[in-house]
Amino acid sequence: MDPRIQQSLLVNRREFFGKQALGLGTAALSGLLAKDGFAAAPQNNRLPDLPHWKPKAKNVIYLFQNGAPTHVDLFDYKPKLIEMHGKPVPDSLFEGKRFSTMTGNPKGKVMLSPVEPFKQRGNSGSWVSDFLPHTASIADDLCFIKSMHTEAVNHAPAISFFLSGAQIPGRPTLGSWLSYGLGSESENLPAFVVMTSISKGTTCGQIFYDFYWGSGFLPSKHQGVKFSSGGDPVLYLSNPEGMSKNLRRAQLDDISKLNEIKLKEFGDPEIATRIAQYEMAYRMQTSVPELTDFSKESEKTLAMYGPQVREPGTLPTTA
């Protein structure tokens, strides 16, 4: 592991997003991943042969925008569409094909040109619609991949395909593979963290299934940990009512002392892991709220996320 990023055990939010982590969905915590064996020094749990080259990326942030205008209205410029505007859908698009009730049969319908005009942007000359004025202004910083498609006609199977490579649930998802292959460098947070938006309006009312971030046939420690949008970001993160941080510390010290006796007597290395995991739980109780608390961010920073930044469950808050 790169010693430069190995250092801090207790990360703050800034550090975490800035230099830590090498997992999907920003956060990464090898710690979550039970290390087989002992309460070890930080290590990133990656596969021995990986990475194949010195990585530049320190973390992967994958924003999945579920529900949006179509690509032909955003960044996939199709001049032919403009040409054919108002004309009936050509036979070649539906003949010999079956359509589900979800997609509908286009027979007898007319073609529609992009709703807003497209222009070429920046030095790269990428086509971006006027729909996306801000995106258009940073076109040179972006990489557009236009070759992706799914065969699914419905949200859930299509998303499952996007995230796992298969329409049918049960395969490991992107983040799980990264956690499995590259491990993580943070000791205080899970390697693969998922945050979802809960606003019905911006998600087409689509439900998030946990197989979207499942680990499939990989060990379950590689599955995404969902930070919830209301209440505790991680389930059961807060101490019970009336239990102070100091008291919890004292309690964990006592649990640890008793577990040490057991370890000495029984020799089961899993006991050592348990002791380490309880310590990690304690550290998460501190680091996760810091991670998800942006009350200390400056107004200027917050303004960059737009006006919805303080509405829980919206994309700006989650981001």
Binding site: A34, P169, P219, Q277, A281
Partner: peptide
Amino acid sequence: DTPARQYCNVKLSRTNTPLHALATLNDT
């Protein structure tokens, strides 16, 4: 560590993570 009960599962999964500790320390 329980199956999602979406499909048949006959193999037990057993992990050791801090999330479990949080549940047994803090759940009502």
